[in-house]
Design a protein around this nucleic acid. Structure first.
Lengths: 228, 228
DNA sequence: TTCATACTTCGATGCTAGCCGAAGCATGAG
DNA sequence: CTCATGCTTCGGCTAGCATCGAAGTATGAA
C-alpha cells in the first residue's frame, strides 16, 4: 500500500501558473492584497479569490484582515524554503518564464528570499560568517558560537528576542542563482532588516531585488569580506 | 515582467497523482519498467506511457532500453533531493496518503532515498561522521577531512573513483521523517551500497524500507555510535 | 515465420478545474 | 444614510487533460 507523504497535492497547488505567480510574488516577503495578487497573476479578482482560498486551505498562505483589505503572506519559513528549492531546481533545468529579463542580474546579486537576504550577497555573507567562526554546524543544523553571540550583539541585534521565538535562529536555504547556501532563520531575517533600517540597502519596488547603496556596499564589505 | 524560474511547470508535473506515485516509486532507486510503474500508479499501460513521456520531457526521469524492456529511473540526485524535500514539507503539513500504514515505522527507521540511506539511521550516520570530524562544512557544502579520507579508505571505499565523477562527493539531503539532514552525494551512495554488499542490510521488496540484520546493526553501531 | 511480450501512438470520451460575469457581503468615507 | 471599495460566492461556460480501447511498432522466443 502507498507509503509516505503525498507530494501530489502540494505539486498541484504549485502547479497552476496563476498560483505559482502569486506565490512567487509573495516570496518578496511583503504581505499583498488579493487585488495586487490578481494583478501580478494576470487574472480577475474572482479567480484570484478562488486560488487564494485553495492556497490557504493547503496551508501555504495565511491572511490578515486590516480594514477592508486582506493581506496575504506565506505562512512560514518552510514555505519560503520549499519555493526557493523549487526555483533552484527549475533554474537548473532551464525552466524560466519569459527568458531572463533585465532585472535578472540585480536579482542574482542580491534579493529577498521571503524574509532574508539571498543571491551573491547572501551566499557571501554566510561564507564569511562561517569563516570567521560566528556560525558553525553541518547540514541544516547551524548554531551561533559564543564569539558569534558577541559579534551579533555588537551589531545591535537582540539575540534574546530571537531565541525566544519558536523558529530556529540559524538555518540554511539553498540559493537558486548561486546553487549554494545562504542564511535563513530569524537571524537571517534580523540581519536583512538591519541592512534596510541602517539605509545600507533598499528594496526595489515590485521586485525581489535588493539594491545596496555605495555606503551600504562599503559597510557590508567591511563586515563580510571584500566585494566583487 | 515576470522574473526568475518557473516553478509552475515542475509543480504541474508532480501535481498529478499518477505521476507522483510513479516518482515516489522511483525514489526506491530501482529502475522500473513502464508496466511496473503503471501497476503502482493504478493505471493502464497506455496512460502510464503518456505520463512517462511527459516526465521525461520535463527532465525528471530518463530511460534505458534493455531488450524489450524500458527501464525508467530518476535522472539524477537533484530530482531525488527535490522529491525528498517535497515529502518533508508534505509530511510536516499532514498531507499523507492512506494514513500512515504498517510499514511506516520501518521507513522512519531506515529507508532508501533514491540512492543513499535516509531515516533515523541516515541522520545518525551523518551526525556521527561530523562529530568524528570525518566530514566538515556548513550548509550544503560538505567536505571530507584528511582523517575522513583515511577512514573511508579503510572501509574499502574507492574515493578516487568518487571524486572523478562530476557530482559532489558529499551533500546534505533533508530527511522528511527526521526533519534533519542526512548524507547524500556519491559518498552517501557508496556507503549504502557497502552496507548492502556486506550483507549488513537488505532492501524490503517493493518498498523503500531498509532492514538491518542483527550483525549489521552491531557493525553499524560500532562505526557510527550506539543504536537506539 | 509465427506468436508473444513490452510498449507507443491514435482517437474518442468524459470530467475536472480554471475562468469570468453578476450578484452578494463587509468595511470605510463622506 | 448613501456611495465606493475590497473581496467572496454563485452559476455557467470552456479548454485541457487524464483515461482507456484499439491499432501499430519493436524485440525476443519457438
Amino acid at each position: 500500500m502507498k507509503e509516505g507523504p503525498d507530494i501530489a497535492q502540494i505539486g498541484a497547488l504549485i502547479g497552476d501558473p496563476a498560483r505559482a505567480n502569486m506565490l512567487t510574488a509573495l516570496m518578496s516577503g511583503k504581505a499583498l492584497t488579493a487585488t495586487e495578487l490578481a494583478g501580478t497573476a494576470g487574472i480577475t479578482l474572482q479567480t484570484a479569490s478562488s486560488h487564494l482560498s485553495k492556497l490557504e486551505a493547503g496551508g501555504l498562505i495565511g491572511q490578515r484582515k486590516q480594514g477592508r483589505h486582506r493581506y496575504f503572506s506565506l505562512t512560514d519559513d518552510d514555505v519560503g524554503l520549499l519555493l526557493e528549492s523549487l526555483m533552484g531546481f527549475a533554474a537548473g533545468r532551464g525552466f524560466t518564464r519569459h527568458r531572463t529579463g533585465p532585472k535578472d542580474p540585480a536579482l542574482r546579486k542580491a534579493r529577498v528570499c521571503y524574509n532574508h537576504l539571498a543571491g551573491d550577497y547572501g551566499v557571501r555573507m554566510l561564507d564569511s560568517l562561517v569563516a570567521e567562526e560566528v556560525i558553525t554546524g553541518t547540514g541544516d543544523d547551524l548554531a551561533l558560537t559564543d564569539a558569534g553571540h558577541r559579534r551579533m550583539t555588537e551589531l545591535g541585534i537582540d539575540l534574546a528576542a530571537l531565541t525566544k521565538q519558536r523558529r530556529p535562529v540559524c538555518r540554511t536555504c539553498l540559493d537558486w542563482s548561486e546553487r549554494r547556501s545562504h542564511l535563513a532563520g530569524s537571524l537571517g531575517e534580523a540581519l536583512l532588516s538591519m541592512f534596510l533600517e541602517k539605509g545600507w540597502a533598499k528594496r526595489e519596488p515590485d521586485s525581489r531585488a535588493v539594491r545596496f547603496t555605495p555606503n551600504g556596499e562599503k559597510a557590508f564589505s567591511k563586515l563580510f569580506g571584500m566585494p566583487g
